[in-house]
């Protein structure tokens, strides 16, 4: 799929698929094409070349779009409406007869502001309301563009928990974008990385990062630890640095403890999504 705005190519021959279920991250610098991609999924804009299928149908079909909840860029609202009225209006537009307004407002932590006009909301509160608005019609696919932007650390934690719950318990497929790469790494199962409108990497995070991260272990005895690892680790100060996949880590730690090693600390060093992202995008910060 390609999308051009005049002479500007926002997305250039993009081709990938998002599996149903789980949390999928779309990463990229400002202007890399993330929001354009989301707008294409919602039929707000149309491809200049190629096409896309969402939930098995074209985004232009209302039946398809009604299964999608979305919060695109900074959410905007009608200033004369309260939080509850905003959700009621959106639910009616979606054809939801009996929306669970209280449930969703409670889930995003806005019960205290139910009857407050949205124009008095802080940026973080608007983000929360945006997520409730995206969820009000019980979507199968949830698109969240920078969902934690403007939120305080406690809010970010709440949102991460909510997103993981929605994916795990409610079976909602979640597509999200964020510049908080650490958050993405904690929240998402897979990612796609855009740079200047092209796809530069895509896949499961643990696969993409395999070999990139190192586990640093610290024990009461460095020698005993190295011996237990059988030469897999190298000394790093008073600790031991080793390459291991995240999937292997629990069994490795259990084996070390069972082997009588007194572990003090186990920590991921270097690598990580941030390093991988910067390598893939070449530090692009304005695509």
């Amino acid at each position: 799929m390609t999308k051009r705005f005049g002479a500007v190519t926002a997305l250039d021959r993009l081709s990938f698929s998002v599996p149903e279920g789980g949390v999928y991250g779309i990463l990229g610098a400002n202007g890399a094409g993330k929001s354009t991609f989301f707008r294409l999924c919602l039929d707000l804009v149309r491809p200049s070349g190629g096409g896309l299928s969402v939930l098995g149908g074209a985004p232009g079909q209302v039946a398809v779009r009604r299964q999608i909840g979305a919060m695109i860029e900074t959410p905007r609202y009608y200033p004369t409406l309260t939080a509850a009225e905003t959700l009621m209006m959106l639910a009616r537009t979606s054809g939801v007869r009996a929306p669970e307004i209280g449930r969703w407002l409670a889930r995003v932590g806005l019960m205290d502001a139910v009857h407050r006009k949205v124009r008095h909301f802080s940026v973080g509160m608007k983000q929360r309301l945006g997520i409730a608005a995206a969820l009000i019609a019980n979507p199968r696919l949830l698109i969240l563009d920078e969902p934690t932007s403007g939120m305080d650390p406690a809010g970010i934690l709440e949102m991460r928990t909510l997103i993981r719950e929605l994916a795990a318990k409610d079976g909602v497929t979640i597509l999200l974008s964020s510049h908080l790469l650490d958050e993405v790494q904690r929240t998402c199962d897979r990612v796609a990385i855009f740079a200047r409108g092209t796809l530069v990497a895509e896949g499961r995070i643990d696969v993409l990062l395999a070999g990139q991260e190192k586990l640093r272990l610290l024990a009461t005895s460095q020698q005993a630890l190295q011996a237990a690892l059988g030469g897999r680790g190298v000394c790093d100060g008073d600790g031991v640095l080793m390459t291991v996949s995240r999937a292997e880590t629990p069994s490795l730690l259990r084996a070390l403890v069972d082997g009588g090693i007194d572990l003090i600390e186990a920590r991921w060093m270097g690598g990580g999504l941030e390093k991988f992202y910067l390598e893939q995008t070449g530090g692009d910060h304005a695509g």
């Binding site: 919602l42 707000l44 209302v62 779009r65 905007r76 609202y77 009608y78 200033p79 959106l90 979606s94």
Partner: peptide
Amino acid sequence: AADYRWETWRLITPRNS
């Protein structure tokens, strides 16, 4: 013109034709 002024088309357009 309200939905252009308040930038709310993105909020409602995906919900109906």
